[in-house]
């Protein structure tokens, strides 16, 4: 176990080495590797530990894994307000190519939470993914934008957090925790769920928010998981999401696809 963890490597990759990645090698069992696509903003930080645990679990079961941060997020280059959807999709493809390079080709699966799921699904073709496991994928981009706006509006008057309510000016260009841009807002408003036309599994939390409620044709294929991440709860911004049932469900579906 210790030797395996030592072999896990943090590194920068991609054009200009702008993207941060963490490679979890594994003894080749199936020839399949897994790309973990993170969610966006505060959700990325809340899911960090969960992604690490999933990566360990998958690597232990013989699936090499690459975790990475999009441009403008995590340890990758770029300011937070530089995060944009087209670049995010390009980063998925860059990360997929990097993973292929490191594990030597073969099939590639992806797991993503929230916008991470949408990114994997939308980039599936260019990244040449063979399957995607999505968790609380965003089905309605406009609802997500409304949710972030509403959370920011609650945040500024949260007297559990601030001594005095903050004026609009202090929060006008932000979503919880991060600067945003008009471009990203427009891009997310247009966001719809894309059927990748490849193997897919749809994990949903026990009480999904409006932005990730699955309609047809996905509803009949959804797999409920006993996890309550409280994506829309402004009191949960600093809370890490940890869930054994989610890890188990994600691992099981990825193993089945491998």
């Amino acid at each position: 176990m210790k030797a395996r963890i030592e072999a896990e490597l943090p590194f920068y990759f991609g054009p200009g080495k702008e993207l941060f990645g963490f490679y979890h090698p594994a003894a080749a069992v199936t020839g399949t590797a897994v790309l973990l696509c993170p969610p966006f903003g505060v959700e990325q930080i809340r899911c960090h530990r969960l992604y690490r645990q999933l990566a360990h679990s998958l690597a232990e079961s013989g699936l090499p894994v690459l975790r990475f941060d999009y441009f403008g997020t995590g340890d990758s280059a770029g300011d937070s307000h530089a995060f944009e959807w087209p670049r995010c999709l390009a980063d998925v493809a860059t990360a997929a190519a990097e993973l292929r390079l490191r594990h030597g080709g073969g099939r590639l699966l992806a797991f993503g939470a929230r916008l991470g799921a949408n990114a994997a699904l939308a980039a599936a073709q260019t990244a040449r993914l063979d399957g995607v496991v999505a968790w609380d994928a965003i089905t309605d981009g406009a609802a997500l934008v409304r949710q972030y706006d509403s959370m920011e509006a609650s945040l500024k008057v949260d007297l559990n957090r601030f001594e005095v309510a903050r004026p609009d000016l202090d929060v006008s260009t932000q979503w919880p925790g991060f600067e945003t841009s008009e471009r990203l807002r427009s891009q997310l408003l247009e966001l719809r769920l894309l059927d990748p036309g490849i193997a897919s599994a749809w994990l949903t939390s026990s009480s999904p928010d409006e932005a990730s409620r699955l309609g047809e044709p996905y509803a009949s294929r959804q797999v409920g998981v006993d996890v309550a991440p409280r994506w829309d709860d402004v009191n949960g911004l600093e809370l890490a999401i940890l869930s054994h049932p989610l890890l188990e469900a994600a691992r099981r579906h990825l193993k089945e696809m491998a």
Partner: peptide, 15 residues
């Protein structure tokens, strides 16, 4: 900062 990983709360440490 607490259990927040190295990027810091809301990426404070990166900035």
């Amino acid at each position: 900062a607490g259990m927040v990983y190295r990027v810091g709360p809301f990426r404070l440490h990166v900035e």
